[in-house]
Design a protein around this nucleic acid. Structure first.
Lengths: 198, 198
DNA sequence: AATCAATGACTGATAGTCGGTCATTATTTG
DNA sequence: CAAATAATGACCGACTATCAGTCATTGATT
């Protein structure tokens, strides 16, 4: 009876159109009016597609992460050793091409910590569990192949969270230069300990 | 002259008086007027002692962390094994008595990620480095005593950040119940690997 | 009288709402 | 079948409520 818009697609379009604004200025320094202008729609329209400013950040992170993870899965499958696979898993935290994405991820974490609804927490939990299962599968595969000791599976959770740990720690200090070296050293050392000597 | 107030003490008094408000509602859901009322001063007075709302959170975290760490140093010195010392280091993240402090710490991290000034980043960097040095010293002591392998020192940074990692990861999911078990398992497993067999 | 502390009314900015308009499609009618 | 009309979702921006932060004034002390 009337115009029917692909709501999901438009949500994506709006989110992506103001991505650079978020990266450049940060959520606190942008107004909804600016976002609307950047997206080429009216202010009210923004609220037809998003609950609030934070919701836009969630959408941006979702879109970009999905894109990123599509290639990640492939790269992990191509890697041969468990160590190499695990390193790719943390690639996001130091890949120079992903600096922009990390900038938004920072906002995302900040929001998630203090302002996320039950819905969003549920979503985060699901996402987290899916990735953790994937991570465990990689480790288990290494164990089954006798590349690493069975004990390594007990390190899964602790290893899984070190990406976040390094990221938060470095971001809070304002020094994100050397995450790669830090993560690499840690993983190399862990692998020295858990690798099965042939 | 005129009335001379102990500015530093009053800053502390104001900060502590609204601590519970921050814990109960979170920074986003409190107004400066509420804070002023809770502290029993005028709104303008708040701005004589703090730059903004975020600044109050920094003060609260500083005060409470300082209190907490005073006892922490002692407890670490009392512990005999390196493993026990390291576990106490992460006590903050799961000690049931510190749930309130963690609630504010959450706000603190959230702010630090996206809104901290150069000054505050500098401060965070200093604090971080001091704690990291302490952490390394504990590990080094264990190495010198031949409790753990020399290699363990390369795990320092990665171990140091797992507290933050678990905290962020669990907080984002809204499940802070099992951090203790997770950290304990991780540390126990790491120590199985780095302990020197006698 | 000089000086510092405290204050709360005021201002500017902005998040979020809501009544109304417009464009498109469905339905009716000649 | 074409024109007229009805229905509806998309879109909008003026408006409102709220609140962070300021500053001119008052009050207290020596």
């Amino acid at each position: 009876m009337a115009i029917i818009v692909d709501k999901e697609q438009k949500r994506i379009d709006i989110a992506l159109s103001c991505k650079d604004l978020f990266i450049a200025k940060g959520i606190k320094n942008i107004t909804i009016s600016q976002i609307a202008q950047e997206a080429g729609v009216g202010k009210g329209t923004i609220y037809d597609y998003f609950k609030n400013k934070e919701d836009i950040v969630f959408e941006i992170v979702n879109i970009l992460m999905a894109q990123f993870n599509a290639t990640k899965e492939q790269r992990i499958n191509e890697a041969t050793s468990t160590k190499a696979k695990i390193k790719i898993f943390f690639d996001f935290f130091y890949n120079p091409d992903k600096a922009d994405l990390r900038e938004i991820f920072k906002e995302f974490v900040s929001i998630s910590l203090t302002q996320s609804s039950k819905d969003i927490q549920e979503f985060l939990k699901d996402t987290h569990e899916r990735y953790y299962a994937w991570f465990c599968a990689i480790l288990q595969e290494g164990i089954d192949k006798n590349e690493i000791k069975p004990l390594a599976i007990d390190l899964a959770k602790g290893l899984f969270v070190i990406g976040d740990g390094f990221f938060i720690s470095n971001t809070m200090k304002g020094s994100t230069q050397n995450i790669k070296e830090e993560i690499t050293l840690h993983l190399d050392t862990i692998f020295k300990l858990i690798e099965v000597k042939q």
